[in-house]
Amino acid sequence: MKEPEQIIRDILRENMKRVEDESFTENVIRQYLSKRRIKASGHFFNFASLIIGVSLVLISLGLVFIFRTETIVIENDILNERHGMILFSIALLFIIYKFLEEYIVISKFSR
């Protein structure tokens, strides 16, 4: 006759709920390795869009300075400092948006 403890152990073992999804291990490893790669590769920081943003800011700032010193007329419309500032604001908003976007992606993957 088996020991009561052994009977309980055997029954628990036989009654054990098992992972039926055969791809479970593979899925976990795939997710883990892809997260690891993202971390190792500097979170896929998208430098291209940031470089574009910085260039736009610099160009618009340059235009502001040109409009301050020289009068530029396109089809009878005089471009002034205000037009340059509008361009500058758009470029600045773009770069802020891109920074926020990158920040969200990084914090999502580093969780």
Partner: peptide, 30 residues
């Protein structure tokens, strides 16, 4: 990957059984 596979395979059923014993739902335990 081979070590990861062995490690997960070794404990996944016992871990699952523990989670099921608490949450009483297979999908959530997964």
């Amino acid at each position: 990957p081979q070590a990861l596979t062995v490690l997960i395979d070794k404990y996944k059923d016992l871990a699952f059984n523990l989670a099921v014993s608490i949450v009483r739902n297979g999908e959530d335990a997964m």
